[in-house]
Amino acid sequence: MPQQLQGKATRPQTTYTQGDFVLYRDARRFWLGQPGHTFVGRVERVWRHAETGKVFYDLVELSTNRLVGEVDPDYMRLLPPADAMADVDTAPLAEADAGAMSPAAVAWLHQHLVQDSSKLPAQRD
């Protein structure tokens, strides 16, 4: 006997602002099985439909720099900076093997050292 769902799935009620990074899924392409239905984008513009009052977003697809307009927020999810930077924040800096760190952590560490190397005090003999 099939089980019935006990609760109703809820979608997050998120308000996005210009510059936010989001994951977007084009529902039509997804249900048709077409490629390229999901991508990471940056919110370019927030606007309200004149007749319905519903909020829509214009996104810039990061991999192609293509503008995608009139995006329904029901198919967007915020990509928090903490998730994107987790590999840097948790890098095992005490490890002797730099190979244990992710490429992003190594790149951040390298950039940080190059930028701040002029601020280091001179070595004493």
Rank of each mutant, 00 (worst) to 15 (best):
V55T: 15
L23V: 15
T14F: 07
Q18M: 11
A104D: 04
G36C: 09
V55R: 13
V46Q: 03
D89F: 11
Y75G: 03
M85Q: 09
F30A: 15
A50E: 11
G53C: 05
V40P: 02
V60H: 00
E61K: 07
Q34A: 13
P80W: 00
Y75A: 06
T10N: 11
R42G: 03
F56V: 06
Y24V: 00
P12R: 11
M101N: 05
N65A: 15
R42Y: 02
P92F: 00
H37F: 13
V40D: 02
G99R: 08
M101C: 14
S63R: 13
A96E: 11
Q4A: 15
L78R: 08
L5R: 14
Q6Y: 11
M101K: 08
G19N: 01
R48E: 12
A82K: 03
T10M: 13
G53T: 00
F21E: 04
P81F: 02
G41T: 00
V68R: 03
V46E: 04
V60L: 06
G41R: 00
D20N: 13
A100S: 11
Y75H: 14
A104K: 09
R77M: 10
A98M: 12
M101T: 03
V88M: 03
R42L: 09
M101Q: 11
A100Y: 01
P92T: 06
H37N: 12
T10Y: 08
T64K: 10
S102M: 08
L67G: 02
A98I: 13
